[in-house]
Write a protein that binds this DNA or RNA. Structure first.
Lengths: 345, 345
DNA sequence: CCGAGGAATGTAACCGGTTACATTCGCCGA
DNA sequence: TCGGCGAATGTAACCGGTTACATTCCTCGG
C-alpha cells in the first residue's frame, strides 16, 4: 500500500510528524498512547493507523525525561559465570518485567572499583531502584546511593548493620548448619574451603559461621584447616590436595561453593580416595552441577530465585514509598552421596 | 563545611542550579563536562567544586536526548543458565565498556515472542547497536530492526542468507568435524543428541552438519540415532538410556552440548558402561564443566569470548558508518578422556 | 591608537516526548 | 433562550541537558 519513500534519508519520525499528518496537536498523539481513554475513538484509530504506516516507535528516553521516571531497575552481581546468579537474576528480570521495568545488569567481577563505577553509571541513568550483592562496598558509591536516595536492596547477605534493607538467607547460620550436619555424622576433623574473604563478605560470613560452630562444638581446627580461594574447579583440586598431603587429613571438607566442591571431589577420585567412604564433602549453592557428578554432591540449597523475586517486590514497595521490611529466607542442606559417617564410625 | 539543608525535600540538582550558584550560564557548566578545554581553568575548577559540594550527577537520559545518542548497546541471549553465554556476554560487556557504551542484556528464554518484545524495547530505548543470537526470529521484529536501521550483528550462527552481518563460528562444519573425529577412531555407529531444532537454529545447523558428514562417509543412521531435547542434564541421561536400551547401541554419541553430554556420561557410569572403553562421548561448547567430570570430556571448543569482542568491534564499525565485514571464527575439537576407538578396534 | 582575531562565555533553540491548564463544542435542564 | 458542564482537544511550559551562533573581552601587530 504505502509508497516507498527514499529510506536512506528518512529521518526518525516523531509525534510531531504524526500530529501534523493527522491534523491534530502533539498532545493528542501523546495521549493516544498514554491515556487512550481520553481520546475519541475515531481520532485514536486514525492516529494509530498513521503511526502504523510510518512504523513509529516512541522514544523511551524522551518519555523518561518528561515523566521523570526512567523505567529502569538495576542489579549488580559479581559474576556471570557462577550460574547461581543466573537464577536470581532471571527471577529479578521476570518480576521487574511484570511491573513494567527494564533491568540493567551490571557485573562487578568481584571488584569494588568496578562496582562503584557501575553504581555511578546507574545513578546517572536515573535507575529507580537498585539490587546489590553483599554490603561491603566503596564508600563513595555507598554515599552516592544514600544521598541520591536510590531505593536499594541488599541480597546474598544479611548486612551486619546497614542503612539499606535486605532480602537474603543467612550465610553464617547456613555454614554453621553444615558443621552440625557433619558433626552429627560423627566427624571431628572438618576442614573449610571458602571464597576470598577480603573481597567477598558472603564468604566471610560463611567462614565466621563455620568457625563459631566448630568452637561451640569443641571441634579443634587450625589455620591449616581453612583455605581461601577463588570459585574455581582447579582451586578446589589444589585445596583438597593440600589437605590430603597432610599427615592427618580431615575426614570431611566443607566447600562453601559447589564448583570448588566438585574440584575437591575430582581430586579425591584421581588420588584414589573414596568419597564418601574415606572422606566426606559438602558443597554450597546446590547448583545443577551438584547432581551431575558422581556421587552426587551434598550441598546447601539457597533460595536464589525466591530471593530475586522478593528483592524486586521489596524494591517496588520502596519506590512506592513504603517502609522497608527486610526479609530473611531459609536454606536447606540437601543430603546426597558425598557425605557419610567418617571411616571406622 | 556545607551546612545541612533539609535533605528530605531536596530536589535533584541540575546544571541550572549549578550555573546559578556559580554565576555562569548553563552552557558553561555543560561545557565543563563535555569540553573542559573550552572553559577557563579557574571557572572550571569553581564549577567542579560546586558540583562536588552538591553531589551533582548529570542526567544521562537528558544528555542522551540532547546528543541524540543513547550510549546503549544491547545483546540478546537465549539463556543465562548456560554459562557458554556468560563468556561471550562478558566479552561484549568489556569491549562495549571500553568504547564508552552501556550494555543492555536481554534474555529471550528461547522464545521468539519474548525476543520480539525485547527487540521492541531496545528500539524504543534507541540502542545504537544490537547483538543477536542466531537468525531465526519474528518477522515483525526483524522488520523493526531493518526499518529503523539499527546496526546489528548476528552471533552463534552463520545465517543462511541474511540482511545482517555476522560474527560466528560454523556450527555445521564443527559438527561435521566431530563425525570425522569419531569416524577416524573407527566408529561406524554414531548417534546424535542435539537441541530442539524447531526453536534453535544453531542446533539445526549442527544436526545438518552431522547428517551431511555421516552420509558423506557412508555411515548409516536412522531416526532412532538422533534425539532432540532441551539443554539439560536429565535430558542427556534419558537420551543415553534410550540408546543403550536398544539391541545394538551406538559405539559413540555426539552431544551437541556439554550439559547433555555430562548427563549422558553420568547415565553410562550409572549403568556400568565404561567410557570411553565401551562407548565414546563427545560434547560441544567446552564448558569449564567438561574438565570437572571424570573422565574429562572431549568437546568442541567455541571461541565465545572472541566472538563477543569481535561482534562489538564490528558493531562499532557499523555505527561509525563502515561497511559490514562478517567474520567466521574457528572451532577446535579438544580431545580428552571420553573419546577413544570403539571396543574391539 | 585602532582593528583583527581568538579565547571565554552567554543566549536561546532544540532533543522528543508529557501534562497542567485553557479553549472549544455540544448537550441539557431551568 | 441561556448558563453550566463534561468531553475532546489545543497551547505551551517543562523535563535536563547540548550546542550553533552571538557577544564580550583581551591581546597584539601595524
Amino acid at each position: 500500500m504505502s509508497k516507498k519513500s527514499p529510506a536512506a534519508i528518512e529521518r526518525k519520525v516523531t509525534i510531531h510528524d504524526i500530529a501534523r499528518e493527522a491534523g491534530v496537536s502533539v498532545a493528542t498523539v501523546s495521549r493516544t498512547f498514554s491515556h487512550p481513554d481520553r481520546v475519541r475513538e475515531a481520532t485514536r484509530e486514525q492516529i494509530l493507523s498513521i503511526c502504523e504506516k510510518h512504523h513509529f516507535v516512541a522514544d523511551a528516553m524522551a518519555r523518561s525525561l518528561a515523566r521523570r521516571r526512567s523505567g529502569f531497575l538495576a542489579v549488580i552481581i559479581p559474576s556471570l559465570y557462577n550460574s547461581i546468579y543466573a537464577a536470581s537474576t532471571q527471577a529479578i528480570q521476570n518480576a521487574a518485567e511484570a511491573a513494567g521495568y527494564t533491568v540493567l545488569i551490571g557485573v562487578s567481577e568481584f571488584s569494588k572499583a568496578r562496582e562503584a563505577q557501575l553504581i555511578r553509571q546507574f545513578v546517572e541513568r536515573r535507575v529507580e531502584g537498585l539490587i546489590l550483592t553483599g554490603a561491603d562496598r566503596d564508600r563513595d558509591a555507598q554515599q552516592l546511593i544514600l544521598r541520591n536516595q536510590v531505593p536499594s536492596v541488599i541480597t546474598w547477605l544479611i548486612p551486619p548493620r546497614s542503612a539499606l534493607p535486605w532480602v537474603s538467607f543467612d550465610n553464617y547460620a547456613a555454614a554453621a548448619a553444615v558443621v552440625d550436619h557433619l558433626a552429627g555424622l560423627g566427624h571431628r576433623r572438618i576442614a573449610l574451603v571458602c571464597g576470598r574473604t577480603d573481597v567477598n563478605d558472603r564468604a566471610l560470613a560463611r567462614r565466621r559461621g563455620f568457625e563459631a560452630r566448630m568452637r561451640a562444638l569443641h571441634l579443634s581446627f587450625g589455620p591449616a584447616d581453612i583455605r581461601e580461594c577463588e570459585f574455581d574447579f582447579t582451586e578446589g583440586r589444589k585445596a583438597m590436595r593440600g589437605f590430603l598431603d597432610r599427615g592427618d587429613p580431615p575426614t570431611a571438607v566443607f566447600c562453601a561453593n559447589d564448583i570448588v566442591a566438585v574440584g575437591a571431589l575430582y581430586e579425591c577420585q584421581r588420588l584414589g580416595k573414596r568419597v564418601p567412604d574415606d572422606i566426606s564433602i559438602v558443597g554450597f549453592d546446590d547448583l545443577p552441577l551438584a547432581q551431575y557428578v558422581f556421587p552426587q554432591l551434598t550441598s546447601v540449597r539457597v533460595p536464589a530465585a525466591e530471593m530475586g523475586a522478593q528483592a524486586v517486590e521489596l524494591l517496588l514497595g520502596l519506590i512506592a514509598g513504603n517502609r522497608a521490611r527486610s526479609r530473611t529466607l531459609r536454606t536447606e542442606i540437601v543430603v546426597r552421596g558425598t557425605s557419610a559417617p567418617p571411616p571406622g564410625a
